[in-house]
Design a protein around this nucleic acid. Structure first.
Lengths: 196, 196
DNA sequence: ATAGAAGTGGAAGTACGTTCCGCTTCTATT
DNA sequence: AATAGAAGCGGAACGTACTTCCACTTCTAT
């Protein structure tokens, strides 16, 4: 909980001169508060809860993050970047098949760990409009590269779409009575279905 | 849309003397209305919508179906029974492996067709408490029988839990941009993972 | 120091779920 | 057919949450 390095641009990032210092501070507080609240109550926790914990009014929350999905995405940014990075690292360090499996495992963890994320992704709720698309857009290239490499190595079949796979895993990550164990089992089963 | 044959017992069915005729009629109207509304707006449609369409007050809806899951389950009853029946029929008529695949296909249709059902099942929303458990309880024996037969025939691996499979398929059935096509594709992939 | 832009907070409007209870309708009984 | 009491009904009332809006505050460039 120290650095606020990432420069945030919720809406269109363009010819903005600069952002007032207090606004920047509030955005930081909101992100921190949201991370905590999301972890303990899920991504559909009341807006007031987050605003209160951040010490700002709800208006400020909505100003910076008009849709719930903006906030979720911002909180997830770090995880998503880590996934993209991991794809590079794994691809360089492991066999094509292993790299793929390990990366999927990591992605599974990210989604399964965020309480209510999987449900939110497919709730159809307007507040989460586009969340799935945006996550997909960021991760699709990473997975596509891993898949292609595995295909070329003959480790997996050739008819699997990266978007499909990302969506499927996200679906399977809804929390159940036995924590993430169920998710892990099912994702493994799905991966078995991938083999050539 | 003609017969109201099924005798409904939302709560505990026991030493109830009888049910007033108008109440029985209202329950019928509510089920019919709910089926229509669920189909067009999803299982989390506003309660008033359903009550209005049935021509009753919201109080009446809540009296007969205290939790949303009671209503959903009642509407699904017919589909669930058809699934149970299909398990018997398919098991008698087809090869073990084929029977399993066809049955899963049918189950997939049932879940994928109900707008919002998959999302509701894992929303964690209190209103849907126990819905998953109850559906699982009704369908588990059917699938267990099919699985065992397929296992004995050497068609599939032996480490698959019927509950897991039912839950996994239900998860995969959340509606996406391409209708049920995605669900079907993913379930097929999962089934490929099942092979011995 | 100051003008004006940027940002803030929370009240107000909206929507929906759920409960509660006075009133209506049914049914068993005579 | 009349009637008493049980069963059921409707919808107003209340609570919770989302979202918008604008008078007011705070910041920053000059």
């Amino acid at each position: 909980m120290s650095s606020e390095s990432t420069n945030h641009e919720p809406p269109t990032a363009d010819a903005r001169p600069r952002r007032r210092a207090d606004a920047q501070r509030n955005i930081g507080s909101l992100l921190e508060a949201a991370k905590e609240v999301f972890a303990s109550e899920g991504v559909d926790a009341p807006a007031k809860e987050i605003a209160d914990r951040a010490g700002v009014g709800v208006g400020t929350l909505y100003r910076h993050f008009p849709k719930r999905s903006d906030l979720v995405l911002a909180v997830l940014e770090h995880d998503v970047e880590a996934c993209v990075e991991a794809a590079r690292t794994l691809s360089a360090a492991e066999e094509p098949g292993d790299a793929l499996v390990h990366w999927i495992g990591r992605y599974t963890d990210v989604v399964a760990t965020k309480r209510g994320l999987a449900a939110a992704l497919h709730s159809g709720d307007a507040a989460f409009e586009g969340l799935g698309q945006r996550l997909l857009a960021q991760l699709e290239p990473s997975l596509a590269a891993l898949l292609e490499r595995a295909e070329d190595a003959g480790a997996i079949r050739r008819d699997v779409d990266p978007d499909d796979l990302l969506r499927a895993v996200a679906h399977l990550c809804a929390p159940g009575p036995d924590g993430t164990a169920f998710s892990q089992r099912m994702v493994r089963l799905l991966l078995d279905g991938l083999r050539a």
